[in-house]
């Protein structure tokens, strides 16, 4: 990656408060094309909030968020259009419970991208194939296991051809035996060159898949490093304590 290339996502001095609580403190961050950035940190450190500011599911009090060098719009059609270019995967899957999986997949491509229904369906089936839940296409979300739902949710986001994928703790709501299947899909996605920003507690995944690890604590970015360096030799005291507390469990 070259130095003068425009980053896909750039955050400049982001601040956010929830009432008296200063949840994001002057955060600056760049994510380049093809990069996989993993954000870790204790719960309540603001990492989820940070992830959600990028498509304005959370508003910010000050600072700037740029997508490919352009500030993200604040409202209206432009905001919707921006969001359609950013894929998002939630902790609780958030598949539409009244629709079958295939309808979940085609809703936004047809309604937002104005794709012909047939084309959208064909592509959706290919994506479901890719994440391994094609045989569940006609079922409604409640009939699927958590792992299957999350894989379908990833496929739903991919159907919009996003420039970047945001993952907000994608495995935190899953039973242990299902975490692996979701992480596998994400690993594959990373090796295909997708730009990804991932908030997670899965340290092994971070270590092996991330290009860069960001450690957040109480609203600030405390440390940024490549995963090997971070996990084997954290520079800050807070990161050391955090990593120790995790390995102990």
């Amino acid at each position: 990656m070259t130095q003068n290339e425009v980053p896909i996502i750039e955050l400049k001095n982001i601040n956010k408060h929830f009432g008296d609580l200063h949840v994001l403190k002057d955060i600056s961050l760049k994510v380049n094309k093809g990069e996989v950035v993993v954000i870790i940190g204790p719960s309540g450190s603001g990492k989820s909030t940070l992830c959600r500011t990028i498509n304005r599911l959370e508003t910010i009090d000050s600072g700037q968020i740029l997508l490919e060098g352009v500030p993200i719009p604040e409202e209206g059609r432009q905001l919707a259009e921006l969001r359609s270019k950013i894929g998002m995967v939630f902790q609780a899957f958030n598949l539409f419970s009244h629709m079958t999986i295939i309808d979940n997949m085609t809703l936004a491509p047809v309604d937002v991208l104005k794709m012909p229904r047939r084309e959208a369906r064909e592509e959706a089936m290919k994506l479901l194939e890719r994440v391994g839940v094609a045989d569940q296409a006609k079922k409604v979300p409640a009939q699927l296991s958590g792992g299957q739902q999350q894989r379908a949710a990833i496929a739903r986001a991919l159907a919009m051809h996003p420039k970047v994928m945001l993952f907000d703790e994608p495995t935190s709501a899953l039973d242990p035996e299902m975490i692996g299947e979701v992480l596998n899909v994400m690993t594959e996605l990373a090796s295909d060159g997708m730009t990804m920003l991932i908030v997670t507690h899965e340290m092994n995944f971070a270590r092996h898949v991330a290009d860069r690890v960001i450690f957040m604590d109480s609203g600030s970015i405390v440390e940024q490093a490549d995963p090997e360096a971070f996990f084997s030799n954290p520079q800050t005291e807070r990161a050391k304590i955090f990593l120790e507390s995790i390995t102990r469990n």
């Binding site: 498509n55 919707a80 609780a92 899957f93 598949l95 539409f96 419970s97 309604d111 937002v112 919009m160």
Partner: peptide
């Protein structure tokens, strides 16, 4: 309706009225 589904609709780029029509009203 879970708030999460509303957020998902937003994140997919659905406009307010698309969300109302496709997610809120049917449910």
């Amino acid at each position: 309706i879970s708030p999460g589904q509303i957020e998902a609709a937003r994140a997919l780029g659905l406009s307010f009225f698309q969300m109302i029509r496709r997610v809120i009203i049917p449910q």
